[in-house]
């Protein structure tokens, strides 16, 4: 994608999005003492690492990758993470939700699908405090969810990690104000303006590699409230559950307990894009088991310091 635009001096939409993201990455690095890149192992995180490398080349990525680990990982995603860290020479910091649960005597989530997803907020806030991060760069996108659609690119959090939607700073032009008081920190979202399809098209153009679970593969699943949930050491079927072997892929790779699979035949990035373009179900709706609880679920979690 380097030669086409040279003649007419115009950027296509993906090049514009990429340039905007790189600009935001550089602002985050320049404005803060101790930034960190929050890394979940999903395709958005992997795309973020790709953008961060571009932003600071020929330097290595000038901040650590931080993985808040729920312990309910897809093994494929963990392997991929470690290989990526090795390849890029980035620093990886892992903090486990399990340890937070033990140290803070929190109650493990119960139920058939015991998601630790919302407990990540505790571990994240502890990690921010422990390592004195003043800026956490994340791969959230505004198209994912209604509450995210309203969040700024530089989003100030108070000392409890909370987001106050009514007290957001105006964010004008491409000027980002990252000034904060002691104890506050800023979440920075470089791919705010990307959609799921933009990310996939970028992955295609840039030939970015992803964990194998993003492509169609056979897996044992059960049907839970209309969604396909993988059988694993964390989720076991009850006697009356129907367990099937299906060809599936994942659209997000949050955590085995809160990420559902979709039936798919898509073995390549092109095929995934084709499937997405014809699908009628949005990304979070299809695969996030934890969002359906209440309509304002995300708004509540964000206010409480969730990523």
């Amino acid at each position: 994608m380097t030669t086409r635009y040279m003649s007419d001096h115009r950027l296509n939409y993906l090049e514009q999005l990429e340039a905007e993201s790189i600009h935001i990455f550089r602002e985050a690095r320049a404005q803060f003492e101790r930034p960190a890149l929050l890394f979940s192992g999903g395709k958005d995180s992997i795309t973020m690492v790709h953008l961060a490398r571009k932003a600071f080349a020929p330097s290595a990525i000038p901040f650590p990758l931080v993985h808040i680990d729920t312990g309910h990982n897809f093994p494929e995603a963990l392997e991929f993470r470690d290989a990526l860290v090795k390849k890029t020479g980035a620093t990886l910091i892992v903090r486990k939700v399990e340890d937070t649960i033990r140290e803070r005597k929190l109650t493990e989530p119960k139920g058939k699908i015991p998601s630790r997803n919302w407990l990540q907020a505790y571990t994240l806030l502890d990690t921010i405090e422990e390592l004195k991060f003043d800026c956490c760069i994340g791969g959230a996108r505004r198209d994912e969810e209604k509450a995210r659609a309203k969040e700024r690119i530089f989003s100030v959090r108070d000392e409890f990690g909370q987001w106050n939607p009514k007290l957001q700073r105006p964010e004008l032009w491409n000027i980002y104000n990252g000034r904060i008081h002691q104890g506050e920190n800023v979440r920075v979202f470089p791919i705010s303006n990307w959609t799921e399809l933009d990310v996939w098209n970028y992955i295609l153009n840039e030939k970015i590699k992803l964990p194998s679970i993003y492509y169609a593969h056979e897996r044992e699943v059960m049907v839970h409230e209309g969604q396909l949930v993988a059988i694993s050491e964390f989720i076991q079927p009850a006697a009356d559950d129907i367990v099937l072997t299906k060809k599936v892929r994942y659209r997000t790779v949050g955590d085995m307990t809160c990420t559902a699979a979709v039936e798919s035949e898509a073995a390549s990035t092109e095929e995934v894009i084709r499937e997405i373009m014809t699908t009628r179900i949005s990304e979070r709706g299809e695969t996030r088991i934890d969002d359906k609880v209440t309509e304002a679920a995300m708004e509540d979690r964000k206010k409480n310091g969730y990523f």
Partner: peptide
């Protein structure tokens, strides 16, 4: 993006 080019124009990082 880490690759050398001959020119750069408005909008590029």
């Amino acid at each position: 993006s880490g690759k050398e080019v001959d020119e750069a124009f408005a909008g590029q990082a």
